[in-house]
Design a binder for these strands. Structure first.
Lengths: 181, 181
DNA sequence: ATGTTTTATAAATGGTTTTTTATATACTAT
DNA sequence: ATAGTATATAAAAAACCATTTATAAAACAT
């Protein structure tokens, strides 16, 4: 059976600068930055290219969301950090970036009977009145698949692209084993 | 130099039951329980004897505060868990209890010049207009001492009574070394 | 018909919520 | 004079705040 092709839709990555950041000091370097500390303890900084958002904390940690590739995620983080450095030269140019979550989509190319899947496939939750997708939790890799009646799939929770790929493939194989696909 | 006598004032302990708890199901067994999930995600259950409060979470974890001895802390936790078990027999009778914080007080029996202490003692913070105590952070054991002009001391952050005792003794010795006592 | 919102999933980040307790100073209210 | 509040310290617990993204069905608004 041929592999399923997945498409990376979202990357969540974190970065640790290794020093505290004075948020009010660096905020002017980030045009359009959102800063409401009563509501959320970080700066929200959005980039148009790559289209991402960065959450920036006083601890010197960042979270970047929205990138569609690991490269873009790193690029966005470096852009944000380079801008911050213009107002705080002690900010390092090298630091750790870690991919925390990868969201990927795929198409199984066949419709699914989710009621039957819910009955026969293990580790599932399906409440169609609440949400039209069926939640399927894999243990290895530790990812969560959302299965839709259209045959489309979302895989979330992966830390590597190969885990996302493997998660989707294992799901397809399991559905085929159970004659659900 | 003789040892300082400390008095345990507060014990914070956590317990892990190892299974989820249906909070609305067990709440009736806890007379006077406070339950406002919009404000805080746990039940607040207070005992008169030992005089303690327990925070009870749906995850099956508890926090007990207010006991003045480790024995009393464990007793209070068992009382709360025994009551919960009357409405949820699957709750185990044996589970892990861990002391997380011990607050102890002591008297150095000599007044302190906190301005001088702030100048000569390392790792201190002293803002008398904000709070009349001087904050002194020890690394080993990792505790925090609050020093007051009266010579009274609060030691907090210890996980064992001997750490609290050692923290206070080391502080006294250090102050004596610096001729601040 | 189009757009928006809600429902659900994962993940990182950090402050708040609640509870307790000694210490002590200032302030307010009764 | 008493009482409460705030200031500060530690610690555990867990949900929310905000960010993103695919998927899709229902409901609502334009």
């Amino acid at each position: 059976m041929s592999d399923v092709e997945i498409k990376v839709e979202n990357i969540v990555a974190s970065a640790t600068l290794g020093k505290s950041i004075d948020l009010p000091q660096v905020a002017p370097a980030l045009e359009g930055v959102e800063y409401n500390l009563e509501q959320f303890p970080g700066l929200v900084y959005k980039l148009k290219e790559p289209k991402t958002a960065a959450l920036i904390f006083g601890s010197g940690k960042l979270v970047c969301t929205g990138a569609k590739s690991i490269e873009d995620s790193k690029k966005a983080i470096h852009i944000a950090v380079d801008k911050m450095r213009t107002l705080d030269p002690d900010i390092p140019t090298e630091f750790e970036i870690k991919v925390q979550n990868i969201v990927a989509s795929a198409n199984l190319m066949k419709t699914l009977n989710l009621e039957a899947v819910a009955l026969d496939l293990e580790n599932t939750e399906y409440e169609p009145e609440q949400f039209p997708g069926l939640v399927y939790r894999l243990g290895e890799p530790k990812v969560v698949l959302l299965l839709f009646g259209s045959g489309k799939v979302v895989c979330t929770g992966a830390k590597t692209i190969s885990d996302a790929q493997l998660g989707v493939e294992k799901t397809k194989e399991r559905l085929t084993e159970l004659d659900l696909l």
